[in-house]
Write a protein that binds this DNA or RNA. Structure first.
Lengths: 165, 165
DNA sequence: CTAACTGCAAAGTGTTTGCACTCTT
DNA sequence: AAGAGTGCAAACACTTTGCAGTTAG
């Protein structure tokens, strides 16, 4: 939960960033941003749309998408998973961890034993939550994405299933 | 990488499972499964399709999807991320971890301090990989998904952005 | 006043489904 | 032979794009 002060600070910060980047501070943008801020569950664009419609009935889903994208580029919002958009599969059924490149979305495996085991002893889980497994994601940039310039390059995973066969 | 023996064992295991569940062991299935097995990068259905076409030019993308789904249900394959399908957003830009329910896809946040810090000292990362952050995902079933029967219920995240506002 | 933003609708991807034909068992 | 699986195409869901009208600065 966000304190009222922290919430206001976040909104103020957003207004400032809009100014800085020469983007208009519209009511729609404020309400969309607040919707994510206030959301306990990490919302989908559709969720945001539904919530925002409560305050701006005329808003369109397209506007939500456009602004969400703008916010992601600006660093005002973050996406929870780097792997939405398309299903990624694996045949390795033994528990293991992943190293993922935020540039090209490549995923490298790590044996479970290669990462020090997690200590969940003092971790406050939601009431009634039954843990089945823990997975660690080490996020960063792979060698080649660093090479081509560590920018937001969309080198996009050319993953032709690698050196398979 | 998979040793030839392990690969054969996996394929044999797959054949056995097909028998067990009364599903036909078709050439398409074998080749699709092998494509994932051989893939270093975690492939998308499209990646699999491309690779399989090398051996079965007449295969259709629909067949790949159908069989991938079957394999997921059977436990022969696993999906890397629980959050493909739709973008999930957050405004919390400070590093933190997630508790995710594999039933309803709900995501709960954990402060970074609530999980014991990771030790990456002896972790062998891919050459040249620059870590930017680590995120822990604690996967399991939330109280309500356990309640309704801990099966593969598709209660689907009704996430109306929670008690916001 | 001008550039940027909004709403709407049409176009794109990624994925699922229905159906006739074919193949495993 | 019978049921399951395949290929094809149409249908869907999620996201992006183009455009004319509107608004912030």
């Amino acid at each position: 939960m966000l304190t009222s002060a922290a919430r206001n600070a976040a909104i103020e910060d957003m207004r400032r960033r809009c100014k800085e980047q020469g983007m208009a501070f519209t009511f729609q943008r404020q309400v969309i941003y607040e919707a994510v801020l206030d959301s306990r569950q990490h919302p989908t664009p559709e969720n945001i749309y539904e919530q925002v419609r409560g305050r701006i009935p005329s808003i369109s889903l397209g506007t939500v998408y456009k602004n969400v994208k703008t916010f992601l580029d600006t660093g005002l919002l973050k996406e929870v998973s780097l792997h939405h958009g398309s299903l990624r599969l694996e045949a390795n059924m033994t528990p293991h961890h992943h190293v993922v490149c935020s540039g090209c979305k490549a995923i490298f495996d790590l044996e479970e034993t290669e990462v020090a085991p997690l200590e969940l002893g003092k971790t406050p889980l939601p009431k009634g939550f039954a843990v089945s497994r823990c997975s660690v994601e080490i996020i960063g940039l792979c060698a080649s994405c660093r090479g081509i310039g560590a920018s937001k390059k969309k080198t996009q995973n050319n993953n032709s299933s690698g050196a398979s066969k």
